[in-house]
C-alpha cells in the first residue's frame, strides 16, 4: 500500500478545501505571517514575593508531598526513611545525572540501579528543571541524565530541586528551556508532573496510583550543603 501517495493526495485536497473555506486568494507568504494574540493572561491572584508557599500549597492540594531538607547530602537518608516506613525494597532507580548519583546512597543502605532495571513497586529519584508556583507542577526533560522511564514507571517518585528553582508561571519554563537549548535541538519530552497518578474511572471515585507513581514527593534542598 502506497500510503505516501495517499497522504500526498489527501494533503493537496485538505489544503485546497482549507484555503477555499478560509477564502484565501493566495498562499500566505513570509511577509504576511499571521501574528498570534499577545501573551496570555496569568491567573489571578498572582504570586508575589516568596514563591515557595505558593508552590507548596498548590502541590499539596493535588496530593503531592513537599519536603525541605538542609542539604542534598541528607536526601538518601530521607528516602531510606520513607522506603522503610512503606516496607518497600531499599533500592532506587537513578539516571546518569552525576549530582544525584554522587549522593551517599550506599551509606544510607540504598542500592542503586538503572532505569532499565526498574521492578514493580520500586522507587526512583530524578532531578527536575524547575517547579511552577501557578500550578504546583514539577518539570522534567528527557535525556540520559533523567530518563522519562523513571518519571512514569516507578511506584515512589522523589524529585530533587533547589529552593531557587521555583518559577511563577508556565511561560517561565519556556524561557528557561530557551535559554538552555536556544534554537537548537530541544529535549524530546518535557513533562509537567502534578502529584501522583490517579483515576476516577471506577464509580467516579478518585483513586491514587493508576499507571504512574502512587507516591510523589518534591525534595527542596540546598545544593551547597
Amino acid at each position: 500500500m502506497d500510503i505516501e501517495a495517499l497522504s500526498n493526495k489527501n494533503r493537496r485536497a485538505i489544503f485546497e478545501r482549507l484555503r477555499s473555506g478560509l477564502k484565501r486568494t493566495d498562499e500566505i507568504t513570509g511577509s504576511e505571517t499571521p501574528v498570534p494574540p499577545g501573551p496570555p493572561a496569568h491567573p489571578n491572584p498572582e504570586p508575589d514575593g516568596d514563591l515557595f508557599p505558593y508552590f507548596r500549597e498548590a502541590a499539596i492540594r493535588i496530593g503531592g508531598n513537599v519536603v525541605q531538607l538542609e542539604g542534598w547530602k541528607k536526601i538518601p537518608l530521607h528516602v531510606a526513611g520513607i522506603l522503610r516506613e512503606k516496607c518497600e525494597p531499599m533500592k532506587v532507580a537513578l539516571g546518569a545525572d552525576e549530582t544525584i548519583r554522587s549522593l551517599p546512597w550506599k551509606e544510607a543502605g540504598i542500592e542503586v540501579c538503572d532505569d532499565l532495571e526498574i521492578e514493580s513497586g520500586q522507587a526512583g529519584v530524578s532531578r527536575g528543571i524547575c517547579a511552577v508556583a501557578e500550578t504546583g507542577s514539577v518539570v522534567f526533560f528527557s535525556g540520559i541524565e533523567n530518563p522519562t522511564r523513571i518519571t512514569f514507571l516507578v511506584k515512589y517518585h522523589f524529585v530533587v530541586l533547589s529552593p531557587d528553582e521555583i518559577v511563577p508561571y508556565l511561560e517561565d519554563v519556556w524561557s528557561i528551556l530557551r535559554r538552555r537549548f536556544g534554537n537548537g535541538r530541544w529535549p524530546r519530552a518535557v513533562n509537567f508532573v502534578n502529584g501522583p497518578s490517579a483515576t476516577a474511572d471506577v464509580e467516579a471515585i478518585l483513586t491514587v496510583g493508576a499507571h504512574g507513581p502512587c507516591y510523589f514527593e518534591v525534595l527542596f534542598a540546598d545544593r551547597a550543603n
Binding site: A58, E134, S137, A189, N191, F192, N194, P196, G212
Partner: peptide, 11 residues
C-alpha cells in the same frame, strides 16, 4: 486543578 497530573510536550 490548575493542571492535570501529567502534561507532556513531545517533539
Amino acid at each position: 486543578r490548575a493542571m492535570s497530573c501529567y502534561t507532556s510536550f513531545l517533539t
